[in-house]
Design a protein around this nucleic acid. Structure first.
Lengths: 193, 193
DNA sequence: AAATTGTTGTGACAATTATCACAATTTATT
DNA sequence: AATAAATTGTGATAATTGTCACAACAATTT
């Protein structure tokens, strides 16, 4: 159950076995069925979540009722609404399971407590955040490019996930409609026309 | 010279005076003239920078020679290319002074050393990164909305900087052309037509 | 197995945004 | 102050992407 996370941590820092155990004690295993919510609009997001199985999407519903997917979370990723987490304000996002999903959940207050006694744990979370940040920096860049480039970039990064996601969700992640994505796909499959 | 940064740190953590001094000793004051580069494409970004005066923009030049501004840096902001910083790979970005600018620069290796002896310093950088992250999460969301909404959101956030930036830079930050921005501005000024 | 529900593809057309060209204006340089 | 360079506004037109409608197909439920 902790194997994936143990490896993930070891990739970035070395933590004493006892500190690792202290950390694990603070975690809660959460199981979500497909379509179930980890977070809903209006809730305060007090937890960070490490996906060990399945996948989720984070999205906003805009004032016209359309969903904007800003992020996915699959195995080995931490996912939270960083804004609500940080400010304690209600979230504008929903985080929903795309498949049956299992994650390890840690509470913000508990984590902040642990940081005081286990500095390398904060180092781990800091490094992970830097990685996610580097990736989001690229996402911002790509969102300023034409739709076809965005789609090709998505395939390079997430190609292995393409068949696990609906076109509706991929299109939303790319900031286009599902119809436009469908046409881009036809274009990529048959560059002749 | 260290006043802004001292206050910025104090807003997030409390650091012993001696640790603060150790940190300051590791900083280098960098002065840039307008249009001068802090980072150029192809360079490895080994430093993080705290702006104390002036402002910079971070942008990529795409394969058609067009500039994509992904971020600005003004007073009280840390700015770096997080990807190059983290991976040690050459940057695809340029960071250029928009005005005469002064910043305090810290080297990554030095900073990582300091983190080992001064955990609260890592706490500070971790918290700052979380704030920036929360802000970028919002930026990703906004980039998926129509241009007018993106512009209005920009004005809400950066309205006070609007006259210090050229329309070309604002447009690029919003992911549109300067002509389109010019038309949006006309629209906002005279909603009648 | 049948029925329901959800997903994807595609055509016709509309809306948005980009491109190109040039004039007007402002800012920087000599 | 005069000149050059950069910035901004605007029209005409093209390209991109969205909207709406409906059919084909797949997945899920009864």
């Amino acid at each position: 159950m902790y194997e994936l996370l143990t490896n993930h941590i070891a990739r970035h820092v070395s933590l004493h076995e006892s500190d690792l155990q202290t950390f694990f004690t603070a975690l809660k295993l959460v199981k979500l069925r497909r379509h179930q919510y980890l977070l809903q609009e209006g809730m305060i997001c007090r937890h960070d979540n490490f996906v060990i199985k399945g996948g989720v999407r984070q999205y906003e519903v805009d004032n016209k009722g359309r969903e904007k997917v800003i992020h996915f979370g699959f195995q080995d990723w931490w996912i939270t609404d960083r804004y609500s987490w940080l400010t304690g304000l209600p979230s504008i996002y929903n985080i929903q399971a795309l498949e049956d999903t299992e994650l390890l959940q840690i509470d913000k207050d508990t984590l902040d407590q642990l940081f005081m006694t286990i500095p390398p744990l904060e180092r781990y979370f800091h490094i992970v955040l830097q990685h996610t940040f580097a990736y989001w920096q690229e996402r911002i860049l790509v969102l300023q490019k034409p739709a076809l480039e965005r789609y090709l970039h998505f395939r390079k990064l997430y190609g292995h996930l393409e068949q696990r996601l609906s076109q509706h969700h991929i299109a939303s992640y790319l900031g286009i409609t599902r119809e436009s994505l469908s046409r881009l796909r036809a274009q990529v499959a048959q560059p002749g026309k």
